[in-house]
Simulated scan of single mutants.
Amino acid sequence: MKMIKIAVRVVNLIGLLLLVLIFAMPFAWMLSTSLKTLPETMIFPPNWIPKHFEWSNFAKAWVSGPFLHYIMNSLTVSAGILVLQMLTIIPAAYAFARYRFKGSGFLFGMVMITLMIPAQLIFLPVYLQLSVWKLLNTHLALILPFASSAFGIFLLRQSFKQVQEELLEAARLDSAKEWQIILRIMVPLAKPVLATFALFSFIAHWNDYFWPLVMTTDETARTLPLGIAKIRQEAGIANWNVLMAGNMILVTPILIAFFFAQRQIIRAFVYTGVK
């Protein structure tokens, strides 16, 4: 019996190591390529460890365009979307979780249906409407279409439903208003879920390429993924080392955000699983 348990643990460990390799290898390859010379990127079979670390690739990527401007645009758009989403999904999730009103099931179903509609299907009417409002080539054109999130409402609703009704009744007996219950009870209890959603939202919109490409035509409001896309050709040769250096600049804020949010993410999954 003891040997079977040891064998199961070994198999589980091997499986976890394989998963780590599958997900870590593309990132490791990107980092390795970003530090190579251009001839080294063409070698087959490829070398994982560069012979000479070309840190100048990052400088070349940075000066290939107004990278600081792209980064500020990406931060503005991602933060603006996240703030608006928090302002909309928290009260909506609370209403769907704690209230029963006529048509609540139908309305929640309509919210869930929006998860099935890809952005590529609705971008044309949204583009035309933003054009009428003269918002193209502005940050608002990249923020307003994502001011709410059906996934966020669903995720937070499930978390709010797990809060005991007795706790809310006790707060109401103490003359607490609904907004006080939301801010002082519901939000603190759902902090891991909110942190998880915030990270997912930040990653999705920080990496978004399609929407900024459609809604902008100049550098005024263009974001970092579009700036990276410009590092494609130089003198007719694909500069993969410089391109990968640009991608490393792109993913660094995501890694930093994940580092600070990982504990909350683990708590969110553990909390949901226990309940």
Results as ranks from 00 to 15, higher is better:
residue 123 F to W: 08
residue 81 I to E: 05
residue 116 M to K: 04
residue 90 I to K: 02
residue 143 I to G: 02
residue 94 Y to G: 00
residue 142 L to A: 04
residue 84 L to F: 04
residue 257 A to E: 02
residue 89 I to P: 00
residue 32 S to A: 15
residue 228 I to R: 07
residue 142 L to Q: 07
residue 103 G to T: 05
residue 69 H to T: 11
residue 225 P to C: 03
residue 242 V to Q: 15
residue 257 A to M: 12
residue 242 V to T: 15
residue 147 A to N: 06
residue 123 F to N: 08
residue 257 A to D: 02
residue 146 F to H: 05
residue 173 L to A: 06
residue 71 I to C: 10
residue 60 K to N: 12
residue 49 I to T: 03
residue 159 S to G: 11
residue 174 D to Y: 01
residue 264 Q to F: 12
residue 221 A to T: 06
residue 23 F to E: 12
residue 272 T to G: 13
residue 171 A to E: 11
residue 198 A to N: 11
residue 35 L to Q: 05
residue 73 N to M: 07
residue 77 V to F: 04
residue 132 V to A: 14
residue 69 H to W: 09
residue 91 P to F: 01
residue 225 P to M: 11
residue 248 M to P: 00
residue 195 A to E: 09
residue 36 K to Y: 13
residue 200 F to Q: 15
residue 169 E to M: 08
residue 106 F to L: 07
residue 30 M to V: 13
residue 58 F to Q: 00
residue 38 L to M: 09
residue 45 P to G: 10
residue 151 F to G: 07
residue 166 E to Q: 11
residue 79 A to E: 01
residue 150 A to C: 06
residue 139 H to K: 14
residue 56 S to K: 09
residue 178 E to W: 13
residue 180 Q to Y: 13
residue 100 R to D: 04
residue 236 G to T: 00
residue 44 F to L: 13
residue 138 T to E: 11
residue 93 A to K: 07
residue 153 I to V: 14
residue 13 L to D: 02
residue 158 Q to A: 10
residue 261 A to R: 00
residue 15 G to D: 01
residue 6 I to S: 06
residue 158 Q to N: 10
residue 34 S to Q: 05
residue 121 L to P: 04
residue 30 M to E: 06
residue 207 N to P: 06
residue 221 A to F: 08
residue 266 I to C: 04
residue 19 L to P: 02
residue 273 G to Q: 11
residue 211 W to S: 05
residue 141 A to H: 03
residue 100 R to Y: 03
residue 149 S to I: 05
residue 201 S to G: 10
residue 226 L to D: 12
residue 80 G to V: 09
residue 128 L to T: 13
residue 78 S to H: 05
residue 58 F to M: 02
residue 82 L to G: 06
residue 255 L to D: 04
residue 224 L to D: 05
residue 112 M to I: 14
residue 60 K to C: 06
residue 51 K to H: 13
residue 217 T to A: 14
residue 76 T to G: 14
residue 239 N to P: 07
residue 206 W to I: 15
residue 16 L to E: 06
residue 1 M to H: 12
residue 151 F to H: 07
residue 271 Y to F: 10
residue 129 Q to G: 04
residue 122 I to V: 14
residue 265 I to M: 12
residue 265 I to G: 03
residue 2 K to I: 00
residue 144 L to P: 04
residue 160 F to I: 00
residue 33 T to D: 02
residue 137 N to K: 10
residue 61 A to I: 04
residue 45 P to R: 08
residue 6 I to N: 06
residue 145 P to K: 15
residue 58 F to C: 01
residue 29 W to F: 15
residue 256 I to H: 02
residue 49 I to D: 01
residue 261 A to V: 07
residue 74 S to P: 03
residue 75 L to G: 12
residue 189 L to V: 10
residue 136 L to A: 10
residue 232 R to D: 06
residue 104 S to W: 00
residue 213 L to G: 08
residue 135 L to I: 00
residue 228 I to N: 05
residue 22 I to M: 10
residue 202 F to R: 10
residue 171 A to Y: 07
residue 227 G to S: 14
residue 173 L to K: 03
residue 127 Y to M: 09
residue 77 V to H: 08
residue 268 A to C: 05
residue 193 V to C: 09
residue 220 T to Y: 15
residue 128 L to I: 13
residue 234 E to T: 11
residue 76 T to N: 07
residue 183 L to D: 00
residue 142 L to D: 01
residue 23 F to H: 12
residue 37 T to G: 13
residue 274 V to W: 08
residue 253 P to A: 01
residue 224 L to M: 14
residue 212 P to I: 15
residue 90 I to S: 03
residue 22 I to V: 15
residue 177 K to Y: 14
residue 25 M to N: 06
residue 133 W to S: 02
residue 80 G to I: 07
residue 170 A to R: 02
residue 104 S to H: 02
